[in-house]
Design a protein around this nucleic acid. Structure first.
Length: 556
RNA sequence: GCGCCUGUAGCUCAGUCGGAUAGAGCAACCGCCUUCUAAGCGGUAGGUCGCAGGUUCGAUUCCUGCCAGGCGCGCCA
């Protein structure tokens, strides 16, 4: 990543890595180490506190090419690393790890960085200038949003925020499947319900169809044609989806209608474009795309022998349309039952002359199971036992629902236990994190009352030398790279896990480091330094929760 | 049959440029509120990282094969 070049935002760790790189390069220049100098030095934060603030395994990596023992390499570098500004100790451990301990006061300068940057702390420029189209949910407008959609509503929205934080220009898009057989069945079902006829065999059976029928009749008295029912019900259902998503704090920039794709001639345009790239052919009266040129199992039909367009035709046209609207990266978030689409979508991109490794990114979300009252709630569309987004929110609230859905990687199936999410204990991680935020808010209310300054004017970093303070500073310093990696890997759950870690570290600090003076103890520099550290922590918790679309309460 | 995902503590799960003694929460057990929010903190116990090979200084992580579970393979949408 290119962040390290930017000295204004370079963290202590980035700076240290650059300094070590110079030290290593100098050693190569003097011929003390032979082989090739590494292009970049990676630092890790050791799990064990005894291993210093940062560690690098560079000596182990260089040993073989240099024909030396890794510990000898480490010894060669030791003194020079120790002379880097801010480094207080360099130890060689185990097979040749170099463990580096930094001056605590210089680490505490981070508080200044955070309180100055405020809600910009954590933002980066790894994706600066990149236009991203983020498509998620894309439900049929033929019914309420259910549990599977809800996972994407939470994760997709959070990913959008994370990508923006990494500097990308993000457009969130919802593709409305408002065309084809499902829509017709939908229209017929609503019509039948409105007229009191039996709903067609393969139609929509859910209870909500009756409600839709009622709403449609009230708004359009005298309506009779199937088409009119379809259109009226479509508008009501779409508006309903939009309303529910709003309550879930998930927003879209573009609601893209599949119909508009056909009406605008985008499908023909897409076929032409693919044909001009040489990947379209005709067999048995149908028009095909040779996706097998790019790893798909079989070629795909775009236009059927009877002249109708396949669903795949819309997909290809839509992709090409996105690219022509100027998006560099098109991210698709699809359900587990669509994993067969990855190959053909990537092949489509390749057929269009794009780089399938860069221009298109398909994420597959696995299923969500629901537990309630100790047993799994069986979900079946046919039996009408689907759980809707709205019902989930009624049961557990927006924050708990969003947070829980986001904190797991999407490619693993997950289980939501409704009973746990209703509990206000730290079995429920969202409360654990929010509580840390509220707890700090309470502490800062108290410091303000005692006129203890949490301001930077009076901030003295040399006060923060306690192990707990140092640990907290270390956790705060991780935030920017967590955000960057969440964006890079499209994994917003990393932010949630990080927040749990940070909250835990804060709670530990709180237990051992008193912020307010005890009894008639006079107010001293330590109190205000700790107050500033609390304020910095609160800022990072708030920034992180904001990336997840979860509230950061001041009182609980 | 082919393809995608998963297999880590009793349970739910973290753990990506391969790194040191594999982590968290819950459940179990033992402690900590006459001064900041106990929705919290500290401690004990709990593991053949599905199995078997391979790659190397080093593998839960990368590769191959196998076993188990979930999902999907239409000129349907």
């Amino acid at each position: 990543m290119s962040r390290s070049e930017d000295s204004a935002t370079a963290s202590l760790a980035d700076q240290l890595a650059l300094d070590i790189q110079k030290v290593v390069a100098a050693s190569f220049a003097r011929g003390e180490i032979t082989g090739e100098a590494p292009a970049v030095i990676t630092l890790e934060r050791p799990k064990n506190r005894d291993h210093g603030d940062y560690a690098t395994s560079i000596a182990l990596q260089l040993a073989k090419a240099a024909g030396k023992n890794p510990r000898d390499i480490a010894t060669i570098l030791q003194a020079a690393i120790a002379s880097i500004a801010g480094v207080t100790k360099v130890d060689i451990a185990g097979p040749g790890f170099i463990n580096i301990t930094l001056d605590r006061a210089s680490q505490a300068e981070l508080v200044r960085t955070i309180l100055t940057a405020k809600n910009a702390y954590g933002r980066g420029n790894a994706l600066a200038g990149v236009k991203v189209n983020l498509e998620f949910i894309s439900a049929n407008p033929t019914g309420p949003l259910h549990l599977g959609h809800t996972r994407w509503a939470a994760v997709g929205d959070a990913l959008g925020r994370v990508l923006s934080a990494a500097g990308a220009e993000v457009t969130r898009e919802f593709y409305i499947n408002d065309r084809g057989r499902q829509m017709d069945l939908f229209g017929q079902s609503v019509q039948a319900a409105a007229l009191g006829n039996p709903i067609p065999e393969d139609g929509y059976q859910g209870e909500y169809i009756k409600d839709l029928a009622k709403a449609v009749l009230i708004a359009n008295p005298g309506i009779t044609a199937t088409e009119d029912f379809r259109e009226a019900a479509y508008q009501v259902q779409l508006a309903e989806q939009q309303r529910v998503l709003e309550t879930f704090h998930t927003t879209f920039d573009v609601w893209f209608s599949e119909r508009s794709l056909h009406e605008s001639g985008a499908v023909e345009h897409g076929v032409d474009k693919l044909r001009s790239q040489g990947h379209v052919f005709d067999v048995d009266g149908a028009v095909w795309l040779r996706t097998t040129d790019f790893g798909d199992d079989k070629d795909r039909v775009i236009i059927k022998a009877d002249g109708d367009l396949t669903y795949f035709a819309s997909d290809t046209a839509y992709y090409i349309n996105k690219r022509e609207r100027g998006f560099d990266i098109c991210i698709y978030m699809l359900g587990a039952d669509h994993h067969g689409y990855i190959q053909r979508l990537k092949a489509t991109a390749a057929c269009a002359g794009d780089n399938p490794e860069y221009n298109i990114d398909v994420l597959i979300g696995q299923l969500v199971k629901i537990m309630e009252g100790g047993e799994e709630v069986k979900l079946s569309k046919r039996a009408g036992t689907i759980i809707t987004l709205e019902e989930l929110v009624e049961k557990v609230g927006v924050d708990a629902a969003r947070y829980t859905l986001i904190r797991y990687p999407v490619d693993t199936p997950m289980v939501m236990d409704i009973d746990v999410l209703r509990r206000n204990t730290n079995e429920n991680p969202v409360y654990y994190v929010q509580y840390a935020h509220a707890r700090i808010a309470a502490v800062l209310r108290n410091t303000a009352e005692l006129r203890i300054s949490a301001n930077l004017e009076s901030f003295d970093p040399s006060q923060l030398t306690h192990d707990r303070e140092n640990e907290l500073l270390g956790a705060l310093s991780d935030f920017p790279r967590i955000v960057a990696s969440a964006a890079e890997f499209r994994e917003p759950h990393r932010v949630a896990r990080y927040l749990e870690e940070l909250a835990g570290v804060y709670h530990g600090f709180y237990a051992d480091c008193r912020v307010l003076p005890l009894g008639d103890e006079p107010i001293a520099a330590i109190h205000s330094a700790r107050a500033a550290l609390c304020a910095a922590t609160m800022q990072v918790l708030a920034n992180g929760l904001d990336l997840l679309g979860v509230s950061a309460p001041e009182r609980m």
